[in-house]
Nucleic acid binder design. Structure first.
Length: 311
RNA sequence: GCCGAGAUAGCUCAGUUGGUAGAGCACACGACUGAAAAUUGUGGGGUCGCCAGUCCGAUCCUGGCUCUCGGCA
């Protein structure tokens, strides 16, 4: 099978479903290189708690967008998108298949739907001002201010979602344009083939729970302690990752280790549910595969059929 | 056996000066355009332990019973 002109493959699905292994095997079979679409793999030194691929796994197939930033660097959707589009072209130029793998639904969607993210770099000072304002008058009232300036944006941002409200106001105040107008969808720039991996939620939860214990035994606490010792602020976006924020609470003596474990499990379940909002079973663009029996062969066959134009 | 406390959603518990009930978690579903493993919205679910009494009306008051927990024997 030869690489198509603009074919890009994606492997999506909830955390702990088994994307990493599947993608590597897929890449080996079709001559692909892997671009991570996981907002937590970006950071160096955050390995155990993010279930990052092992160094051996990273060596078998070229991987990108992993370990590209220190934990105190702030990444974003737009930055991710820009960098990834560049990498896709690079891999295509080499005559290989780009395989985008990850569980960060927003990153995936932005790519597959061709989002034009508003050109407006976050303005921390402005955000802080808006945040203070929001706390004074209340999230609902701040949202009402937004409604005056941009009815459409106010419509798709929940009234109590102060963070989204602030971003919209930030963009409006800085650009003088409506946030809703800048929120453009260009449609897919490549011929995306989206593979969705899924398993019954109960099993998924069980796997995720097991993984939490593996992480704790595998040195999650000392990893977090190391990050704090190196001076990384627990309030950094990177440190808001599941597994990290809870262990920070434990290290600060606010909760016990067992409470931290329970919290991580709880937050992971909620995360899996939220991920399902981006990857829906009803989404006709996604080719869904149950993980049992292992779907590599079928997925390869479906892909081959697609290449031959039979689909 | 005696004394005390308790029995309310799947779990932990709050509550009703008597007018058939709530919160967190769990579970399910949704939003999202430069913080996204973030932030955020909605929903289903209860014969309020059992029986009797008082009352227009009992989950709440009274009596009995069953069970649980703690203390004493």
């Amino acid at each position: 099978m030869l690489p198509d002109k603009k074919r890009v493959i994606l492997v999506v699905g909830p955390t702990a479903v088994g994307k990493t292994r599947f993608a590597i095997e897929l890449a080996k079979n079709i001559g692909g290189e892997i671009i991570s679409a996981d907002s937590r793999y970006l950071y160096r030194g955050m390995d155990v708690g993010t279930a990052k691929p092992t160094p051996e796994e990273l060596n078998t197939i070229p991987h990108y967008m992993i370990n590209v930033a220190d934990p105190d660097e702030v990444w974003s959707l737009a930055a991710y998108q820009n960098e990834t589009v560049r990498l896709i072209n690079e891999i295509l130029d080499k005559g290989k298949f780009p395989i985008i793998v990850g569980g960060t639904g927003q990153y995936i969607r932005a790519l597959t739907e061709g989002w034009q993210v508003p050109e407006m770099v976050p303005n921390t000072a402005l955000r802080n001002v808006l945040m203070d304002w929001g706390y004074q008058i209340g999230a609902g009232e701040l949202h009402r201010k937004l409604a005056v300036l941009d009815t459409i944006a106010a419509d798709f941002i929940d009234a109590s979602n102060i963070r989204r409200t602030i971003r919209a106001l930030e963009v409006i105040f800085t650009t003088g344009k409506r946030f809703s107008e800048l929120r453009v969808k260009d449609g897919p720039a490549y011929d995306y083939w989206i593979i969705g991996l899924i398993m019954p939620r109960k099993e998924l939860f069980a796997r995720a729970d097991e993984r939490v214990d593996v992480m704790l035994k595998g040195g999650l606490v000392s990893e977090v302690k190391g990050l704090l010792d190196r001076g990384y602020n627990p309030l950094l976006p990177s440190m808001s990752a599941i597994g990290y924020k809870e262990v920070v609470l434990y290290l600060e003596g606010k909760i016990t280790l067992d409470e931290a474990r329970q919290l991580i499990i709880k937050n992971t379940h909620q995360f899996i549910r939220r991920q399902a909002n981006w990857f829906k079973p009803t989404d006709s663009r996604i080719h869904w595969y149950q993980m049992d029996p292992y779907p590599l062969e079928i997925a390869l066959r479906d892909l081959a059929d697609k290449e031959l134009g039979n689909t």
